[in-house]
Design a protein around this nucleic acid. Sequence first.
RNA 1: GCGCCUGUAGCUCAGAUGGAUAGAGCAACGGACUUCUAAUCCGUAGGUCGCAGGUUCGAAUCCUGCCAGGCGUACCA
Length: 554
Amino acid sequence: MKQKIKNLILKAALNAHEKGDLPSSKFPDVEVEAPKIEAHGDFSTNIAMVMASVQKMQPKRIAEAIIKNIDNQEGIIAKTEIAGPGFINFFINSVSWHPVLRRIHEEDDRYGASGIGKGMKIQVEFVSSNPTGPLHVGHGRGAAFGDAAANILLFCGYNVEKEYYINDSGRQINTLGRSVLFRYRQLLGKDIEFPDDCYQGDYIRDLARQIKEDKGSALLDQREDETVLYCAQFAAKQIIAGIRDDLKSFGVEFDNWFSEQSLYDSGKVDKVLNDFRKQNIIYEKDGAHWFKTKEFGDEKDRVVIRNNGQTTYFASDIAYHKDKFDRGFERVIDIWGADHHGYIPRIKASIEAAGYSKERFDVILVQLVNLLRGGEPVAMSTRAGEFITLADVISEVGSDAAKFIFLTRHHESPLDFDLELAKKKTNENPVFYVQYVHARISSIIRKGRERGIENTGWDEKAIAMLKEPEEINLIKSLGSYPETVRLSAEFMEPHRITFYLMNLASSFHAYYNKHRVLTDDPLLTCARLYLVVAVKKVIRNGLTLLGVSAPEKM
RNA sequence: GCGCCUGUAGCUCAGAUGGAUAGAGCAACGGACUUCUAAUCCGUAGGUCGCAGGUUCGAAUCCUGCCAGGCGUACCA
């Protein structure tokens, strides 16, 4: 509809110029928007104001010239007016909204989809939590965000791959192995102190117990470096399996799990470091090897090989990001916790140095989550091993509520997650508010069937009966869904869909309370059923993008 | 110190490439269930958009400075 108005305006401007009403043929991009205030019409354009200086005319004169030349043969426009400093407001004939409903029924679960991505191969990497402990709430936000963003991109015609990067190499893995080994020794009666720098959580004890059941006391007699390695590999494998399970129960699945260790095994880390040496952008100082990231805009150079000969995490990350582009992704998006923001310049440096444009790479920072219970902060200490895991949250509030709440904020805004609030089944908790619409409409359909009323198709005569303000309002809202999805993809902002759904839900509940769908008039009932089924489809489509279920009953 | 993010109603937050009178929910107050699910709806009230300048027809939005909070600033990941 907006596009139609745009075209009408453009054509009107051209006509006006041909007839001599407008001196210049230079027209700016036509901007059409839906005004916030109802009295300002359904659509509004500022074109007359924008053109004023080029046309050397008063905005109001320009507006008059355009309105005069609008071709309203289809009768879409009920009224136009010039308002304020020169806005042209368009009031749409309410009947003209109706075809939106047919489109929704026809396109069904593809309504809102588009081809703006043009099949571009794009990778979204998210969560990528270290396999040294279970996922916590912050990872949950990253998971909900990344998954929704990927769904939206896919829906908009991108060729999306979701990837999880497993840091199964390096120091933290060694620490994991040591942690488990110490607990294992304690289990076998050794009186030893558990080191401070090891992971404290109870899950380490559980892993040690499993090894004990497996191997008995056999590990006590072996060389320490071998047992640490064994414990590390065993533990990491178990923890990754746990992470996969948690994500699965959260409704998030990945297309690819990428191992950091594999970059070493395949020699990709060595290779990229050698390439950089040849380019003379790696040098030695104080026994360490430094990558000249400063030359690429970082604030200082960064170590890639420590003076003890071990590579840093950054070294494998260089190889990893190069590999992403080598695999043919045209765009690469990393979703990180906001506390890693200082890491961005060096990754961009490495991408440039590897010969790819950093413009093709984006990092989206997701702000931290404050966990609350009844308004009070929940103490979270990783050190002491006291934290609420994502699995805890899912089992307490459910994945639908958790996901939806994670997606009710812009990703750059910190989020207070209140466990008590997330469980409340009231308007304070928006997920139920939206899901309730789906359940209510399902119920209407069931009730209709009981009375022998089936959802019939498009019937011009019936649809023409939809003229209550609440009905037109609902249809308008339905009509703006595709644009919401498009903007959501363009700006990587899934929360736009969340807010859209809450708004649509509000329009529906208001309608539901004021009007009955199943009436004594068969034609009207048919029309209203057609309308609410369209609402149901859009609610379902939106929730699906967010990874949230749309229940038939609540 | 430097860098990134945030600052909008009592609380939690939206606010499109700069648009007209800044919007929701919660909390407060007053109403609506013999009728399709009251997990709902309707109404009232609530604001110096952190502060100060600047850019222009027009700023919550862009620019500069300041204030407050969070995060980062490793040969950790």
